[in-house]
Computed example of a mutant assay.
Amino acid sequence: MDVIVAGDRAELAEARRALGIGGTPPAEASLALVPTMGALHEGHRSLMRLARERAEHVAVSIFVNPLQFGPNEDFSRYPRTFDADLEVCAAEGVSMVFAPSVEKMYLPDRQVGVSAGEMGTVVEGAFRPGHLDGMLTVVLKLFNLVRPDVAVFGQKDAQQLAMVRRMVADLDLPISIVGGPTVREADGMALSSRNRYLSPEDRGAALALSRALFAGAAQRTPEEIRRAACAVLAAEPAVAVDYLVLVNPATFAEVREDHTGEAILAVAARVGSTRLIDNVTITL
């Protein structure tokens, strides 16, 4: 079956009808959504495969959301590769792609959005004010429009995943949220649509991010973890660190020395003109 492409609400509703979604149980088909901003890579493919395990049909949204970008960020140059993205979706058995324009997604006099609350002001939210508000706003709109049973997000954007789970819990949304593991290249670098911005020299320097995380993960206490990871980053002068934090995966509050259980070691840094993020989960 060819991928059905929908660009607005009417086309999306027609696509759902064509796929038998929204019928009467038990005949109603299940649907999993993979929200993306396009420029799809193997990490996105892994999320589509995970989605196919959870539902009869998979929908992928392709939308570069302006609300997630600050005034000095890379919205205008964010890679847009729609034709190639459609080929990826077809190869992965995706049933439907929702690819609205900004004008179709947001009213010109839009006023109401989602607040990420206190959790949206720490870690990534502290360096990108309003970013997590914008992310949650578009995710809620996608949930309301596509109406999936399941939504799949990558663990690479760990705070985003945590915030979506919190929104679903706080707002009683009838959607199951699934996290997919980070996909890495052979040298350990996490796949990202922004990796294509890196020059060969920058890419070599950017490997310090994953090396720092792996060095930290090999330690036993929060202090040792932070010290080992910081030492790796300090040895690479081409990497300008925004943050390196060890946080609670549910709240993104910094963990204390007596913390037990899971923690997330997360890093954000600029290499050249490109900002990259990465994280690993550690059990203490």
Rank of each mutant, 00 (worst) to 15 (best):
T121S: 10
G154K: 05
V138E: 01
H131I: 11
L145N: 03
K141D: 07
V150T: 13
T121L: 12
K156S: 06
Q111G: 13
V114L: 11
R147K: 13
L142T: 04
T121V: 03
A158Y: 06
V139H: 03
D157A: 03
R147P: 00
K156D: 08
F153W: 07
V122E: 02
V114F: 05
V152K: 06
P148K: 10
E124Q: 02
G120H: 11
K156A: 06
Q111L: 14
V150L: 08
G120S: 11
N144M: 13
V146R: 01
H131N: 08
G134F: 02
G113P: 12
Q111S: 14
R110L: 15
L145H: 04
V139C: 07
V150F: 08
M119P: 00
G125T: 08
Q155N: 04
L136G: 07
E124A: 04
L142G: 02
G113N: 13
R110G: 12
L132Y: 13
D149P: 03
F127M: 05
M135W: 00
R110C: 15
A158D: 08
E124P: 00
P148C: 12
L132G: 03
M119K: 11
G113S: 15
E124S: 01
D157G: 09
S115T: 14
G125N: 09
Q111T: 15
A158F: 03
V112G: 04
V152C: 13
Q155R: 12
L136F: 01
R128W: 03
G134Q: 11
L145P: 00
G120T: 02
L142A: 01
V150H: 06
V114Y: 00
V146P: 04
N144K: 13
V112S: 12
V152H: 05
L142C: 04
L132K: 05
D157N: 07
M119H: 06
G154W: 09
G154L: 08
D157S: 10
V123H: 02
N144P: 01
G130E: 05
G134T: 10
D133Y: 02
D109C: 12
V112D: 06
V122N: 02
A126N: 04
A158I: 08
P129H: 03
